[in-house]
Amino acid sequence: MKIPITITVNGKKHQAEVEARTLLVYFLRENLRLTGTHVGCDTSGCGACTVLLNGKALKSCTMLAVQANGHEVTTIEGMSTNGTLHPIQDGFHQKHGLQCGFCTPGMVMTAADLLSKNANPTEDEIRHALEGNLCRCTGYHNIVASIQHAARAMNGASTTELPKSKVTTGELSMSE
């Protein structure tokens, strides 16, 4: 049996009829073709499916589409405006916070949630906030740096950059 729902996604109202068992992530990916939200697991462990529900980070594989009825969802596709990257997206670009890009949408949405609650997070706070999101490519170092970069850009936050990692093309950078 199909159930009618109305969900606002990235500012646009969508009315649809869905199976009761349809997860929010599949509604986004298949009904709305918003494929930026990814599925990485079947146990709510990877965070690749993270979206914002009424402004708060949520793993969209943990919620049924019908439960999102009447709510507002923001996906990665809703983060940039008129082709301009959101400062968090730009932070990931500036600090090489992504490699294969599969975890990236979830990371960006989790970061958005964190920075909305804590404009000036410490490295530990960022790492703690990212606990629910797996990345197999980056080792997280540059994701942390990306979020710090975004915090500075958005809020003039005073977090200092991670200073340590440095690859050079010349001889050893012995002075660093």
Partner: peptide, 23 residues
């Protein structure tokens, strides 16, 4: 055989890395 049971490093398991190189 799942992300609940197979432990991979998460952000708070790792420090920032100190990296340099020679050529």
């Amino acid at each position: 055989g799942s992300y609940m049971d197979y432990t991979m490093p998460r952000a708070d398991d790792l420090p920032s890395f100190e990296v340099d190189n020679a050529v």
